[in-house]
Design a protein around this nucleic acid. Structure first.
Lengths: 109, 109
DNA sequence: AGTATACATCAACCTAGCCTGATATGAAGC
DNA sequence: GCTTCATATCAGGCTAGGTTGATGTATACT
């Protein structure tokens, strides 16, 4: 596998990893519906404050969310194109899987 | 958060987790292009046989791939609708994120 | 029958990542 | 200025999961 391929798969895998935790995926789903501040997310998920803050940091570090601070509240919204790009990638993958010829390569050691 | 919601997010997160490892994602990408046997996947990825076998087991257990045994070879193909369903879910999420009204809920403790 | 090949499983190790209690920071209100 | 509230960070414990060498199990070949 080429280095480029490793990197591409690695970067995409990193974005999938963002969605691979149930609580973090739930947070992303909530933010997909509307902008929310940390207190809402704690309320809606029922998770501890530190836990929610931990996952928000992961999403922030990955550039998946942006923040606006208003007084003592911090508002989170989804970064616009990250999910869209991933959805496009995944759809393309699913399509090629659908249309892939089912011929078998020779097994020639 | 309701139990149902936990489960839904949990199941979806589990599918995303399948794609969250670079090597496993690479394997899925390769299988999206054509049916392959283990030896091809080892070749293409450059990973050790046991490592590839380990990831194939995870994909098998999750129902993401199906196998056909031909002699001493095992052919893997992607399960047809798993990726498609996930792509649809993700696109829906991305769309709602795009169209979400940017009003802010009150923060009323 | 004996050997080689393809693949799976096992056991052990190691790292990444999640959860949490304690603590820090910083804005609001009195 | 002190307290309160919202949120972030830190440090520690624990678990899940990735990698790997050794080993098991078929199948194919001679």
């Amino acid at each position: 596998m080429s280095l480029a391929t490793i990197n591409v798969s690695g970067e995409r895998a990193a974005v999938f990893a963002l969605l691979a935790d149930p609580l973090r995926l739930r947070i992303v789903e909530l933010l997909a519906a509307e902008e929310m501040c940390t207190c809402h997310l704690i309320d809606e998920t029922g998770a501890k404050q530190t836990t929610v803050s931990h996952h928000l940091r992961i999403l922030r570090d990955a550039g998946a969310v942006t923040t606006t601070e208003v007084g003592k509240f911090t508002w989170y919204r989804l970064a616009p194109h990250l999910l869209g790009a991933l959805a496009a990638d995944l759809s393309e993958l699913a399509d090629s899987a659908e249309q892939a010829g089912r011929h078998r390569l020779p097994c020639a050691p």
